[in-house]
């Protein structure tokens, strides 16, 4: 019984982190599908989400309003990032664009450091500090918020991509840009839109974890890396795969640090990544990429 409660505690911890990794991973996946590039500035959107919501909340806005405004603000930043950094170089090779995103990420991080300084900031949780007890294991209300809102966002994203005309256009532009252009879809707009959507997802991850982890200018790098792992493990092409990858990664980390040794926590994440890359380079669920680029 005690062992079960212990195990459950690891799983709660893993699922909470995993949901965040999944949201960040989805940001990678959306941009990858639209442009075949990996946006290494994705982690910085998470950091911006966390710091902007804390700033809005400090201005005295109610928490729900601050959350929505923060995600909206970071979405605009994502759109601007595409317009200012990616589009001027759109004829460059994928690898050049990826390097641009690395540079963009460093720039965003630097600007955040100038704006917010190097201290961490706290945000009150969405509802209550008191942990809930479930079969001997405890879970914070914030963790439930994270899991529930991640689920909602994933379902919403899936519905958006499959049932709205804009979502379908984005998918079309990603499958075959030339054909999409022929039927009148503005592919460049879809690319920009994908950056906005990724930024929104990253910001959502940021506002969700801010009460647990606090917001600090350099929080994005490691989270971005974990999200990238999640996306690659699950398969960059599949939403379901990325979510699975994120949860798997989170739970594996928690189990490794609880049952084996906490020193192996990060090693486990990257070990899983390597194993997947060796044996299933397309990811656990992912299809083989349609493009060769």
């Amino acid at each position: 019984m005690e062992k079960l409660a212990e195990l459950l505690q690891y799983i709660f911890s893993g699922l909470t982190n995993g949901a965040i990794y999944a949201l960040i991973g989805l940001g990678f996946s959306i941009i990858f599908n639209a442009t075949a590039i990996i946006n290494f500035a994705q982690g910085e959107f998470v950091m911006l989400g966390a710091l902007v919501v804390i700033a809005f909340s400090a201005l005295g806005l109610s928490l729900p309003l601050a959350l929505v405004l923060a995600v909206a603000a970071v979405t605009v930043m994502g759109l601007a990032f595409e317009r200012l950094a990616i589009r001027p170089a759109r004829d460059a090779t994928a690898i050049s664009l990826i390097i641009i995103t690395v540079g963009g990420g460093v720039l965003i991080k630097g600007l955040a450091m100038l704006l917010w300084g190097k201290d961490a900031y706290t945000l009150p949780p969405f509802s209550g500090q008191e942990p809930l007890t479930l079969a001997g294991a405890t879970i914070l209300p914030q963790s439930l918020w994270i899991m529930a809102l991640t689920l909602l966002l994933v379902v919403g994203l899936e519905a958006f991509l499959h049932f709205t005309i804009l979502g379908k256009a984005m998918r079309a532009a990603s499958y075959n840009p030339v054909a999409a252009r022929l039927v009148g879809i503005r592919v460049s707009q879809m690319v920009q839109f994908s950056f906005g959507l990724s930024a929104a997802l990253g910001a959502a991850a940021g506002v969700l974890i801010a009460p647990i982890t606090m917001g600090v200018y350099d929080m994005g790098t490691m989270l971005g890396l974990k999200g990238f792992c999640a996306a690659v493990i699950g398969g960059l092409g599949s939403i379901f795969g990325v979510v699975l990858g994120g949860l798997l990664l989170g739970v594996a980390e928690a189990l490794a640090s609880g049952l084996v040794s906490s020193g192996y926590r990060d090693a486990v994440a990257f070990l899983i990544l390597l194993l997947v890359l060796f044996f299933r380079p397309q990811g656990l669920i992912g299809r083989r990429p349609l493009r060769s680029s």
């Binding site: 911890s13 928690a254 609880g258 040794s261 906490s262």
Partner: peptide, 20 residues
Amino acid sequence: QEVFGEKDTDMTPQLTKIRT
């Protein structure tokens, strides 16, 4: 004896282990 990373955001696994 448990360890954590400088940028880790969740130490409940280590502490759960300590609880036992």
